[in-house]
């Protein structure tokens, strides 16, 4: 083993070599650093730490609570000098406001006549990464909208709340804007949302379909009667 290699090695270990054995170069006396006394007694650090925790404890014990709005607000509160620092939201009584685009339980929107808007196009089960949507289509009596979901089920236990179904829907038929969380259930089967429960949360959709509004077909027929081409 060369001398330069030997020195390089000791350098790597970061220890000061006091002497090296003449018999074997790897046997040597090095100086190791011991922690300083103040680092081993822990007294000063203990006192300092106690100071920090005591400050928090006293502040939180004696000063009044911050308002929920302040606790909700993003960023540093402006006038919080004489308020305590507790951030806990007492859930059932207090609720944080969710962001506008919060994705909650699904709902199926309705047409003007109260029927489900979904036409069972299967875009949402196709795009669903969790395969949680089951749709069995059926034919309707309405010649204009021939297709409807006979069964529309979402397994909320499987759902990963990605919102891709809403993005994929060409009819504004499925939304996740209920602001509701998945219910706690006693049985896995109870977590499956049916067409009826999701329609129960539904609202009338006024989204424009076919570029002419939800009543475009009826409207179109009226105009066609006076159409010059006829």
């Amino acid at each position: 083993m060369s001398a330069s290699h030997h020195e390089e090695e000791t350098h790597d270990m970061g220890l000061k070599v006091l002497s090296t054995s003449t018999i074997h170069p790897r046997v040597r006396t090095v100086q190791v650093s011991r922690p300083e006394a103040q680092d081993t007694t822990f007294l000063a650090a203990t006192a300092k730490g106690l100071g920090v925790t005591l400050k928090h404890f006293a502040r939180n014990l004696f000063l009044p609570m911050k308002k929920l709005a302040k606790r909700n607000a993003a960023g540093a509160p402006t006038d919080e000098t004489w308020r305590n620092e507790i951030e806990t939201v007492q859930y059932p009584e207090e609720k944080v406001t969710y962001p506008e685009r919060f994705r909650g339980l699904h709902r199926l929107t309705l047409r003007e006549d109260g029927n489900v808007r979904c036409v069972a196009c299967m875009c949402c089960p196709t795009v669903c990464p969790a395969h949680c949507i089951t749709i069995i289509p059926a034919e309707t009596d309405d010649k204009g909208i021939e297709k409807k979901p006979a069964i529309f089920e979402i397994d909320e236990l499987r759902c990963v709340v990605c919102g891709l179904c809403v993005e994929a829907c060409p009819c504004d038929a499925i939304r996740m804007d209920t602001g509701m969380h998945a219910r706690p259930v006693e049985d896995r089967a109870d977590a499956i949302e049916t067409r009826e429960t999701m329609m129960g949360r539904g609202v009338r959709s006024i989204a424009v379909q076919g570029g002419e509004g939800p009543d475009w077909r009826a409207h179109g027929h009226e105009v066609t009667k006076t159409d010059v081409n006829r």
Binding site: T53, H56, F57, N60, L61, N84, E85, I86, E87, T88, Q90
Partner: peptide
């Protein structure tokens, strides 16, 4: 309770 108070909880 005390630990919560020390940690800004309830």
């Amino acid at each position: 309770r005390q630990s919560a108070m020390m940690q800004d909880r309830l």
